[in-house]
């Protein structure tokens, strides 16, 4: 098993005719992802990498049975693209786009409240269930199928962590980048609830960063409800207050969002925190090794 996406996912790429959209469509196809359709308004009828392009997500759903969307639409049009996918009934919407105005996301969050679509992102690398499907921009070859889940607010930092897991012989069930913006579709807690029910997932690596209180909320949730091993890492322990560290959400403002507070909250909840990225893989192995005996190395498993 895995969560949200697997070999049955039929992906529609929104913004497929753009530079990024076309490039990553090819990479996803190479990985084995079923890219069933693309959408670019006004360019319906074309093909990109052999994938049929439609004018609306509704058409892509009706004609090709798309059930997962991956959005590469530029910031001014991205909020509308998310709503387009949700209106068409797409169940999992992954928004890669970086730079969407916060007030647009306020509208999106309100719009999604009574829909049963799950939004991942925006400003995220996407989601991958190794060996099954990859919906996003992460390099597929560093992943291996296995039993560790990864939930992260970051992009390349996630690759670093996944790479260390794989080298440590720990494959992954599903890895999700939830996004680096102040308002995101789904949080750590939303996905922890899914991983709790996923029999294949035996432990979770949670990668947070400065800004907001998502890690503190996750800590509280884990203490009460989540009983699989969790290892956390927080980026930005040395970040100065008041400066936005790249991600729109990564800012220590009004004394809130400090790494030390997050680390303290996680530790108080009994969660292992890897303080040093350089040795994270080892920390995970230590924690998992203590609690699990049946972890199998997946280094030799075949790539899709």
């Amino acid at each position: 098993m895995s969560i949200l996406v697997d070999e049955n996912s039929r992906v529609v790429v929104q913004g497929i005719t753009g530079r990024e959209g076309a490039f990553h469509t090819k990479r996803m196809l190479d990985y084995g992802t079923v890219v069933a359709a693309g959408v670019t308004p006004g360019k319906g009828g074309r093909e990109v990498e052999g994938v049929p392009v439609f004018n609306t997500v509704k058409q892509a759903v009706e004609k090709e049975g798309a059930n997962v969307s991956c959005i590469f639409v530029p910031p001014p049009f991205a909020a509308d693209a998310i709503m387009d996918a949700a209106s068409a009934g797409v169940k999992v919407i992954v928004c890669i786009t970086e730079g969407i105005p916060v007030l647009d996301m306020v509208k999106v969050a309100s719009f999604l409240r009574d829909k049963d679509s799950v939004l991942i992102g925006p400003n995220c690398p996407g989601i991958i269930s190794p060996g099954k499907t990859k919906v996003g921009i992460m390099p597929g070859d560093i992943h291996r199928p296995g039993n560790m889940a990864v939930i992260s607010r970051s992009g390349t930092l996630t690759y670093e962590v996944v790479d260390q897991l794989t080298r440590a012989g720990l494959g992954q069930s599903t890895c999700i980048g939830i996004g680096g913006d102040p308002i995101i579709g789904t949080t750590f807690i939303d996905h922890l609830k899914r991983f709790k029910e996923d029999s294949e997932t035996e432990g979770v690596v949670l990668i947070g960063e400065i800004g907001g209180t998502a890690e503190e909320e996750a800590a509280e949730h884990i203490q009460k409800e989540f009983h699989k091993p969790v290892i956390a890492f927080i980026a930005g322990q040395t970040a100065p207050p008041g400066r936005r560290m790249g991600h729109a959400g990564a800012i220590i403002a009004r004394g809130q969002g400090k790494a030390e507070d997050k680390i303290a909250a996680l530790q108080e909840a009994g969660i292992a925190v890897a303080l040093n990225l350089a040795t994270l893989g080892g920390t995970v192995l230590e924690v998992i090794g203590k609690k699990l005996t049946q972890i199998k190395p997946y280094l030799d498993s075949h790539l899709p």
């Binding site: 930092l157 670093e160 980026a235 790249g246």
Partner: peptide, 30 residues
């Protein structure tokens, strides 16, 4: 570094090694 999260984490690693970063520089994805 490429990526904000990895850049922050790299700064942290530098600090833990006993040095101080002079800057944060995320060159971004593309």
């Amino acid at each position: 570094v490429n990526g904000a999260g990895l850049a922050m984490a790299t700064m942290d690693v530098i600090k833990m090694a006993g040095a101080e970063p002079a800057n944060f520089l995320d060159v971004g994805g593309g």
